[in-house]
């Protein structure tokens, strides 16, 4: 318990350093664009592939489980949309990104630590925490919500495609379900969640990388710890944010 509190304290101090006034904004702008490409654009493929299959599987499972003359078929489309918007495209995609982006951030910064690249920045008088971590946080907080939107659209398209390809339900019913009782606030809710999750993934992974010690083995350990810690914190904040934003 004491160790967890110590870690939280170190994390808070690190975030204090990260959010101190940047040395030169033009440098940070360039780095933010680079990070958007490395952490955001490069995650589009993975997000799209997982979303299309999950959307299709949700539609299949709904149609199998809701097979009854008393249940209108459009509810399958409705259920797919709600599942994609409320949970999959924010929480599950965030967990997947914690694995991909989180481990990449922790190992990148961890390697920089053990190969003295961070020391080199400090010697130059650069606030290394801010220089390395802030652009990553800004990039993911702005880009990950876009991935959530993309995931929603592709997941819903996956559901539609499976209904057309298998004939398991009438595609028009699916579309009717997608439009049924749509509340735009659900999208706002998922975007807010995703922005929070982006911050959690990036800052926690950077924290574990920044304080990595020793050799390449330790970088691997830091990377694993980053993914585990990010995933747990995501689940905790999913509960908290749902309580605050939806209830």
């Amino acid at each position: 318990m004491l160790k967890i509190l110590e870690q939280i304290g170190r994390y808070t101090l690190l975030m204090g350093k990260v959010f101190s006034r940047p040395e030169k904004m033009s440098i940070y702008r360039r780095r933010i664009v680079r990070e958007m490409e490395a952490l955001g654009l490069d995650s589009i493929g993975l997000t799209a592939i997982i979303s299309v299959f999950i959307g299709a599987v949700i539609t299949l499972q709904m149609s199998i489980n809701l097979e009854s003359p008393f249940i209108p078929q459009y509810l399958i489309g409705y259920a797919t949309r709600e599942t994609m918007i409320l949970e999959f495209s924010s929480t599950v995609v965030a967990l997947i990104l914690a694995g991909k982006v989180g481990s990449s951030i922790a190992s990148e910064i961890g390697t920089m630590r053990i190969t003295e690249q961070i020391d080199a920045l400090e010697i130059m008088g650069v606030n290394s925490a801010s220089y390395l971590i802030l652009p990553k946080i800004v990039a993911t907080v702005f880009f990950f919500p876009f991935l959530a939107i993309l995931s929603i659209l592709i997941g819903i398209a996956g559901g539609y495609a499976i209904s057309v390809l298998t004939g398991i339900m009438i595609p028009d019913d699916y579309i009717e379900g997608l439009l049924y009782d749509f509340r735009p606030y659900s999208i706002v809710y998922t975007l807010i969640k995703m922005a929070f999750f982006a911050f959690i993934i990036t800052s926690i992974s950077a924290f574990f990388g920044y304080y990595a010690k020793g050799n390449s083995l330790e970088v691997g350990t830091a990377s694993t710890r980053a993914v585990v810690a990010s995933s747990i914190v995501i689940m905790i904040f999913n509960l908290i944010l749902t309580q605050i934003l939806l209830i």
Binding site: K24, S26, I27, M112, T115, E116, Q117, A120, I123, M124
Partner: peptide, 29 residues
């Protein structure tokens, strides 16, 4: 610190930057 130059044992060049970008970094900052 701006008057200090340091050469580390392993070089400590930023892996994600080219040679020119590494050398230019202090000038940029």
């Amino acid at each position: 610190r701006r008057d200090i130059g340091m050469i580390f044992q392993g070089g400590a060049l930023l892996d994600s930057s080219t040679v020119a970008e590494n050398v230019q970094l202090p000038l940029d900052l």
